[in-house]
């Protein structure tokens, strides 16, 4: 009897939590198909105004431009971060010496540095280098992160040293070993890194807000936030913009959910 009660309570708690977790996203998607008035009336019925909202959004903001920018910046950041951080993680683990370990602990301190502190100097540096409103400016500060280096270092730990030795004897140089042996074996870690970096880059808001000062260089989160700033807010149109800006990360989430959780598991081990 008692066990039954516990089980009922468990399922109720989990179901309620799951519903609360999904509901705001569902509400957002439904609202994207309704007029602003209907959205505000609290309706939960999908409407027929999706296309009208889309046309209004097109007229109001350069959505596809922002979408393209967000993709360019995010893909660029993801590829560069994966290469640079995996090289470093591999280097720290496979060639580790006391000095390299010391350097790693020093780099970890970068995790504590708030963007609010570096944002003004970085903004000035980017200005001097002529990198305002550019993809390079977006990408540079977040290509190399201690978290990602640590993740790759953890996974390099499980990479058998015998393989490296054997490859050396076969005459492969260190870069060849890295790209031909390590890279293909560590697909799961790379997939996890891809999800983490892409989502961070796509969702980044403060930094692009600092350096992207033209309409042509704007990102999707910036564009959606702008829609809220008028006196009269068209909620249907706004929710459509939110939907569009959420779709890519949700798709990646569903495709790579497993490797994402595995990546986190790998990063917290040891």
């Amino acid at each position: 009897m008692k066990r039954r009660l516990v089980s009922i309570l468990t399922y109720t708690f989990l179901t309620v939590t799951a519903v609360f977790s999904v509901f705001p996203l569902l509400w957002m998607a439904i609202s994207a198909t309704n007029t602003s008035q209907v959205v505000l009336s609290g309706s939960l019925v999908p409407g027929t105004h999706l296309y009208d909202n889309y046309l209004a959004l097109l007229q109001n903001q350069p959505v596809w431009r922002a979408m393209g920018n967000s993709f360019t910046y995010s893909i660029g950041q993801t590829l560069l971060a994966m290469v640079i951080c995996s090289l470093a993680g591999y280097g720290f683990e496979v060639f580790h010496t006391r000095n390299k370990d010391r350097l790693m602990s020093l780099l970890l301190m970068a995790m504590m540095v708030p963007l609010a502190a570096t944002m003004v100097p970085l903004f000035q540096m980017m200005g001097k280098m002529g990198l305002l409103n550019t993809a390079i400016g977006f990408v540079l500060p977040s290509v190399s992160t201690p978290f990602l280096i640590m993740m790759f270092r953890q996974s390099a730990r499980s990479f058998p040293h015998d393989i490296i030795e054997a490859a050396r004897i076969d005459g492969l140089n260190e870069l060849q070993i890295f790209f031909r042996m390590f890279f293909p074996t560590m697909r799961a870690t790379y997939a996890a890194a891809l999800t983490i970096v892409f989502m961070n880059a796509w969702n980044n808001y403060l930094w692009p807000k600092v350096i992207m000062q033209t309409n042509d260089s704007m990102t999707m989160p910036m564009l959606t936030a702008n829609l809220m700033s008028g006196y009269v807010v068209d909620y249907g149109m706004l929710m459509l913009a939110v939907l569009l800006s959420t779709l890519p990360t949700v798709i990646i989430f569903f495709l790579l959910q497993k490797s994402f959780t595995e990546g986190i598991a790998g990063a917290i081990k040891g």
Binding site: V19, L25, T249, F253, T261
Partner: peptide
Amino acid sequence: AIFLPCATSLVSVSLI
């Protein structure tokens, strides 16, 4: 379901 909110950007969360 419980993990899904992570896929939403903080700006989107705020606006929703």
